[in-house]
Design a protein around this nucleic acid. Structure first.
Length: 443
RNA sequence: GGCCGGGUAGCCAAGUGGGAAGGCAGGGGACUGCAAAUCCCUUACGAGCGGGUUCGAUUCCCGCCCCGGCCUCCA
């Protein structure tokens, strides 16, 4: 069993930033999960949702509704969106506000072991009490201190200490605690929920590179100071997704929301976009990239379509397909090397098309099987676009027959008009030696 | 200023101390009534710049330039 915390997702922090990792921080752990699963590991995945913070409180006040209600609404919208992206749902998606008791217990423990102290209703983590603080992000406590530009807070013993519990302010949601009414600070919720659902020590913690400091660093400090055990064995940090300068993007007309992108391109294309670069590299989000990804994915779906009707492969193997499977495995085993893995898939598609061209149908069927298997591991799915038109299917067939008749009497004007009209209606027509084929345009 | 990551063809993007993957776009050809799809050929004597190590560097080392992140509250 591999225990994974997929990402610390905060509801309050949505899409305002020029640079964000939110979507990638969902795609990347999803990829890891799928790959581990394919490799025979059982994966238990938790996605923490932070549903209480300044922004949520502010929004609740603006909308004149309880903050937790607002938060839950946004959380569900978020989850729906991520699901549309084809991200497998986690086994557990705990909410911070449902784990106040666990957080309080954790903070009490930290106070007990001398890693935290109460100060006028606030509780702070004493950073200097934790020797390896800064290790994950490669920071040194003294340098951090000299670089600090914030005015000293007299309630803290040390500038670097961070809040575990915040004394309640008027009009804010608060909970009772041993230190009076208040609410949790940022970071502690992730430690509490990870501890509860994954255990005090677990395998992999994923998240955006932007969270490495201070959030992940603080999670480690809190969790390890309390448990005395190693928190996460491995960290999977994804590079950021640059949304570009909002003004500039707007003038170029390439600013697009995740929902819009999903509507326009579908989840496969989004996935192609994200997996085209290595997960640790930074990448730019703009619509030209999406259009390129769409063109690239079209090549895959064309192959899938072309091989759909092939008889299932008999035991015959294809050395070409097996070589490619090897390449794919090797690329993915080496730190989820999706660019190389996908390159192998593109080569498989080329080889498969050549098999088709050469009439090697049995071998092409093997290529198809391997292709679908591997693309499936990456989370791609191929819908049947040659059916599903429901009642219209017989009508399409009828129009195709009319067009074929027109072509036979060399009435190309009529034939082309039928094809053009069908295209307008979202039915793509392609002639082949075996007769005309059609499919519904994506997404 | 400090720490970290990155600069590879028109665009995107890998691997590698010794032939620079793959995709998109472009050009030529085959097939086709046409189109689409597909196939074949083609597009970096060069990898931000300058040094160094080496028989040999895009790949290692040093310096510089540029881009980005973090270094602060909040998430």
């Amino acid at each position: 069993m591999t225990r994974v915390e997929s990402a610390c997702t905060s509801v309050g922090r949505r899409c305002r930033r020029r640079r964000t990792s939110a979507t990638r921080a969902e795609i990347v752990p999803d990829l890891l999960r799928r790959w581990l699963g394919y490799r025979g590991h059982e994966v238990f995945c938790v996605r923490n949702i932070t549903d209480i913070d300044d922004k949520i409180i502010a929004r609740g006040r603006d909308e004149n509704r309880p903050a937790v209600v607002v938060a839950e609404e946004y959380a569900r919208v978020y989850e729906r969106q991520i699901e549309r992206l084809g991200v497998l749902p986690p086994q557990v998606a705990p909410r911070a506000t449902g784990h106040i008791i666990e957080m309080i217990a954790l903070i009490e423990r930290l106070v007990e072991v001398g890693a935290a102290y109460e100060s006028g209703g606030d509780v702070f983590f004493a950073v200097r009490s934790f020797d390896s603080y800064g290790q994950l992000s490669g920071r040194n406590v003294d340098e951090l201190r000299s670089g600090a530009r914030v005015e000293p807070d007299e309630r803290k013993r040390d500038l670097l200490d961070f809040a575990l519990w915040k004394r309640a302010k008027a009009g804010e949601p608060s909970w009772t605690s041993p230190w009076g009414r208040g609410r949790p600070g940022w970071h502690i919720e992730c430690s509490a929920m990870a501890g509860k659902y994954l255990g005090t020590a677990f395998d992999i913690h994923a998240g955006g590179l932007d969270l490495i400091f201070p959030h992940h660093e603080n999670e480690i400090a809190q969790s390890e100071a309390a448990s005395g055990r190693r928190f996460a064995r491995f960290w999977l940090h994804n590079g950021l997704l640059m949304m570009g300068d909002a003004k500039m993007s707007k003038s170029l007309g390439n600013v697009i929301s995740l929902d819009q992108a999903l509507d326009r391109y579908g989840s496969n294309v989004l996935r192609m976009f994200f997996l085209s670069a290595h997960y640790r590299s930074p990448m730019d989000f703009d619509e030209n990239r999406l259009a390129e990804a769409a063109a690239a994915f079209d090549r895959w779906s064309a192959f899938e379509r072309a091989t759909r009707g092939l008889p299932p492969p008999d035991p015959l193997t294809s050395t070409v397909a097996e070589d490619i499977r090897q390449r794919f495995h090797q690329a993915m085993d080496d730190d989820l090397g999706t660019p190389a893995a996908q390159a192998a898939l593109f080569d498989l598609v080329s080889a498969g098309n050549r098999m088709l061209e050469a009439g090697a149908r049995a071998e092409a069927a093997v290529a198809r099987t391997v292709f679908c298997e591997l693309a499936g591991v990456l989370g791609y799915s191929f819908a049947d676009r040659t059916s599903g038109a429901g009642l219209y299917e017989p009508l399409i067939a009828e129009l195709l027959a009319l067009r074929t008749q027109a072509r036979q009497r060399r009435d190309f004007a009529t034939a082309d008009a039928i094809r053009a009209r069908l295209t307008q209606l979202g039915v793509v027509l392609q002639d082949s030696p075996e007769g005309p084929r059609w499919y519904l345009a994506s997404p």
